[in-house]
Amino acid sequence: MTILNDELREPVRNFTFPRHTLVSLLIFAAFWEVLSHLAPVLGIPPFAIPSLLKIGRSIVTITPIDIVVTLARVIGALLASFVLGLAMAMAMYRSETLEKYLHPIVRLFMAVPVVSWILFAVLWFPGVEFRIGFVLVVVCGPVFLIDTLDAMRSVPRELRHMIKSFRPTTLQFFVKLMLPAIVPTIFTSWKVNISLAIRVVTIAELVGAVTGIGHQLSVAQELFSVADVFAWTIVLVALLFMMEAIVARVETRLLRWRA
């Protein structure tokens, strides 16, 4: 067997040129451009399918502050949801009684439609930021909670038994075993929740905010500016991909121990 040192390990590849993604996006863009020119012939109003040039012009006029605001809302709420969900999952893992009482409520929260949460938030809370934060946490928190709780329960009995034989404190049990063991699930949960949060924040901003991408979408809709709607949508999608890429990068780094 060869000597294994960190220096001798195959380095993790940092970047692969996304050739296939680029080609498929270019084909889609070309198809779109052709469609925008054919729209009148096909009986579609010309403003409904703006050309790439028009969308490009709208993108150039986009206000970065709205992107920053939406991004801050998403990241802040995701962090709060994660901490809350993880803490509750740990408490529920420790106490079967607590789990029995809380589980039905969590399931109930997950069954409530996002639009209902937004309406509740508008009716209950005066502050816009709190409303948006509330909706995001109440939607994303339970996902983190259920995912991490399930993952904790799936930690092999043999490993739990092993670490208990060395007599850890409760905190050590979670820090040394449970949290590292559920890291892969935590990353999956983050990826799911990023996508969820981007969609939810857009609707929440659309309904009750005066800043952010959702609000700008609402303005574009009022002005019948389809090009602006597309531009903001492209920004949203790009944001989502960017955040997912960052999470995937961290995931690769932290889970390099996997075969």
């Binding site: 043999e158 490993l159 038994h161 092993m162 670490i163 034989s165 060395f166 007599r167 850890p168 050590q172 040394k176 075993l177 590292p180 063991a181 890291v183 889970l255 121990w257 996997r258």
Partner: peptide, 29 residues
């Protein structure tokens, strides 16, 4: 704590820890 130690049928090493870090585990505890 630190007075009883065990070796199991399967090694039961923590897969995310290197050999060195696995051996350190009881000392950390």
């Amino acid at each position: 704590r630190g007075k009883i130690a065990t070796v199991f049928q399967q090694d039961r090493l923590l897969p995310w820890r290197s050999a060195l870090d696995n051996v350190k585990l009881p000392l950390e505890l």
